[in-house]
């Protein structure tokens, strides 16, 4: 079973993602802040991280979390997809620079997200 880590400071969004993914056979873990996300990532070694960028409560923003995951030799292969309201070109570029493997802008279509996740994770 694949493990997916959902990171968003808003519970509603987490719930949305979770419900979206519930159709598949995945283990879902949630984090509400960047620090929590990093800690969980290191602990659980998820296969995929769905990562929000804007997390005012935490000291780490999504980009930083991505960078850290990607630079961690253990977690390097974790797929990171940014799910964020920030959809400017420079945001995409920053995401790319941070090493993200994908980018979804809110509001997103759950179906699309689902198919993307399947594509990335499952064969």
């Amino acid at each position: 079973m694949k493990k997916i880590l959902i990171v968003d400071d808003q519970p509603e969004v987490r719930e949305l993602v979770e419900v979206t993914l519930s159709i598949g056979d995945y283990q879902i873990i949630q984090a509400s802040s960047g620090d929590e996300a990093l800690a969980l990532a290191r602990a659980e070694h998820p296969d995929l991280v769905l990562l929000d960028v804007m997390m005012p409560n935490s000291s780490l923003d999504g980009f930083e979390v991505c960078r850290r995951i990607k630079s961690d030799p253990v977690l390097r292969n974790t797929v990171v997809i940014m799910v964020t309201a920030r959809g400017q070109k420079q945001d995409l570029q920053m995401g790319k620079a941070a090493g993200a493997d994908g980018y979804f802008t809110k509001p997103f279509s759950p179906l699309e997200l689902m198919s993307k996740v399947e594509e990335v994770l499952g064969e």
């Binding site: 509603e12 309201a85 809110k106 997103f108």
Partner: peptide, 10 residues
């Protein structure tokens, strides 16, 4: 966008 995420998503 934020509330829209929920509205559209759900």
């Amino acid at each position: 966008r934020t509330p829209l995420t929920s509205i559209l998503g759900f």
